[in-house]
């Protein structure tokens, strides 16, 4: 159902905004599976967000650090895709081939380059949340760690070039529920079953924190 809604939504967006952009199969979150066959945030180094309008944003991951970027774009024409990364990090003209709707191979035969990108799994809850933050195009820095009390994986998130302002914890094996407030402001809240969000930095304005909670909670 969720997939259907998402599919329907992206399809609508594609038709409404940019019918020229041919192949809506590209839209969504993809990770470079070169480092890791199965999705594992600590093993991979790139997740991309391909927008219906040809925008390209992403998350560079380096073991326990991740940084968001935006301002790239992509263009599909025939069996070719031109990917332009922001800040002069290069323009790549590649051929593409969909192995199925969740896997695409990019190749540059001249340079003997090949990479398989896979669709970010729906149950990669933490990464899905981080990619939603990437899509806001606000400066994003993340440090990743483990905290068995809160979740198996924990992301300490800094938005807008500020100090770390909140944490997102994920535990796929557990079900979280509830909320704790301090002076009426949300301090901790279960985003959904497997994600917990914590306003780590008391200086971080409660309204901004709540906005982000709403953003990440929205389906």
């Amino acid at each position: 159902m969720k997939n259907f809604v998402k599919f329907a939504l992206t399809t609508c967006l594609a038709f409404a905004a940019m019918p020229v952009l041919a192949d809506e199969r590209f839209q969504g979150y993809w990770y470079d599976s070169t480092g890791s066959e199965e999705f594992d945030l600590s093993e991979i180094y790139l997740i991309e967000s391909l927008g219906a309008d040809g925008s390209l944003r992403g998350l560079d991951v380096n073991v326990d650090r991740a940084n968001g970027f935006s301002g790239g774009h992509y263009e599909v024409s025939g069996d070719r895709i031109i990917i332009t990364y922001p800040e002069d990090e290069g323009e790549f003209t590649l051929t593409y081939e969909f192995l199925d709707e969740n896997r695409v191979v990019y190749r540059n035969e001249e340079e003997d380059f090949q990479a398989v990108f896979k669709r970010l799994p729906e149950d990669a809850y933490l990464s899905q949340a981080l990619m939603r933050l990437v899509d806001t195009e606000r400066p994003l820095q993340v440090s990743l760690g483990e905290n068995p009390s809160i979740g198996s994986i924990i992301a300490l998130v800094s938005l807008d070039n500020e100090e770390a302002n909140f944490e997102i914890g994920m535990d796929k094996a557990a079900v979280y529920e509830g909320e704790m407030t301090q002076g009426g402001d949300v301090l901790l809240t279960a985003l959904h079953d497997h994600l917990l969000m914590i306003r780590t930095n008391a200086e971080y304005p409660a309204e901004q924190f709540s906005e982000i909670v709403e953003l990440l909670r929205a389906r």
């Binding site: 009390s149 535990d171 557990a174 079900v175 979280y176 909320e179 704790m180 407030t181 002076g183 917990l196």
Partner: peptide, 24 residues
Amino acid sequence: RQAFRGQINRNGVPVVSTVSRHLA
């Protein structure tokens, strides 16, 4: 200065609890 309220459960068991209005 301000009151704590609420609770977070993990698998139905409290992991974060309000002890009193000034203590979590």
